[in-house]
């Protein structure tokens, strides 16, 4: 794992936001690494630990706590479908199903420990997320950092990411 100088510079700047304790920068450092590499590898955990002068277990504890951090590579476009009540009432389960169908993703292997399913071609991956805080416009989902509300048609949504 090679952390480019540019990325490290960005990370170093982020760390300055926490003048009292470097450890506070764990989340921003991990976010920066995940943004660049797509997920948090074991090496990334070690790198972050070294950067912040922490025992690696203290970083791993954090990485595994948050669903926002992935420990395996997602697709090029990672979809998060809101599963929680208002979106569920608005049809998020159906949305998930149609998105999987349209993106050719098999979710049968999804478990608590492996919440993400990746399509065969690696273009799309998908998982359920808990409440994305747009309950009035469900069903909602995120594709990478893009937010989509009132998603009715899976194909229409995916077409924006077919390149």
């Amino acid at each position: 794992m090679e952390v480019p100088a540019e990325l490290e510079k960005e990370i170093d700047e982020r760390i300055t936001h926490y003048p009292v304790s470097k450890r506070s920068a764990v989340l921003p450092v991990l976010h920066a690494l995940q943004h660049h590499f797509g997920y948090i590898s074991e090496e990334a955990v070690e790198w972050a630990a070294r950067k912040l002068e922490l025992e690696p277990i203290k970083v791993l504890e954090v990485v595994t706590f948050y669903p926002g951090f992935r420990q395996s590579a997602p697709g090029k476009y990672h979809i998060r479908v809101c599963r929680t009540l208002s979106c569920a009432m608005a049809g998020s389960a159906e949305l998930m199903e149609s998105l999987c169908k349209a993106a050719k993703i098999d979710r049968s292997g999804v478990t608590h420990h492996h919440p993400i399913a990746v399509g065969e071609d690696g273009r799309f991956s998908i998982e359920f997320a808990e409440c994305l805080a747009s309950c009035g416009t469900g069903p909602v989902c995120m594709v990478n950092d893009d937010f989509h509300e009132k998603v009715e048609d899976a194909e229409t949504l995916l077409s924006k990411y077919r390149d």
């Binding site: 277990i57 791993l60 420990h113």
Partner: peptide
């Protein structure tokens, strides 16, 4: 010697030693 920690969360929380340690 902080090599132990909890990973995952909720009812799935596990006590673990850091991989390789």
């Amino acid at each position: 010697d902080p090599v132990l920690g909890f990973t995952d969360r909720g009812s799935h929380t596990v006590l673990t030693v850091h991989p390789g340690q």
